[in-house]
Amino acid sequence: MIEIRNLYKAFNNLPVLNNVSTIFQKGNTNLIIGQSGSGKTVFMKCLVGLHEPDEGGIYYDNLNFTKLSSRERSQVRKKIGMLFQGSALFDSLNVEENVIFPLEMFNKDMTKKEKLERAHFCLDRVNIHNANHLYPAEISGGMKKRVAIARAIANKPEYLFCDEPNSGLDPATAIVIDNLIREITKEFEITTVINTHDMNSVMEIGDHVVFLYKGELWWEGTSEQILTSGNKEVEEFVYASELMRKLKTN
């Protein structure tokens, strides 16, 4: 569980995040949505410590992350898995080595064999078979995403941050990836935070949806509730596409 209390962040005295409070529950896929420039990325970066918030607190299971020393922070970071935009695999490492990388970095006391087993387990879990020795250039975008997910969960994270996980994927593959993330979230009881533009994702896996508007938490709820939020800005966002408008009138 991650609890955010009254988060405030400004750049050059211009508030980008203003008094944001919410709770991301364990075993849930928590989605951050909002228009471009609404502050999603800054919000996420604050959560993982890539930006320092000006005010407010971020509690990882009641541990105030903003108040921790850098040593204590790196303890917390060990429990965070990250899925970067565009997969961001290391081109010079093969699939297996990519997944082993975070194990190599964090787990000094795992044996080589244990690391290999863990990597194989994760790759199995994301349905990558017989590709362990291929290089990123030799596999498809969807597969890269899966490998990246395998890498993100290699360290048995308690928290998983995904930045636009299905950008650049066709809708069918995007849904597969979305569901994979959700399955893993449920299966390993991870607190997952996903930053997305994609209404499909919202409908598919939105256990908890946070809508940011001009840096403020404008609305939050489930994917079902979002269709009937009654909130003007949310509706504008949700029914931006023709398809959703048609669905609404039905």
Binding site: V48, A88, F90, P102, M105, F106
Partner: peptide, 16 residues
């Protein structure tokens, strides 16, 4: 630069 950032985010120490 990006790769360095990702490595760091995945736990790589400065020394590495």
């Amino acid at each position: 630069t990006t790769i360095i950032g990702i490595q760091k985010a995945l736990g790589a120490k400065n020394f590495f």
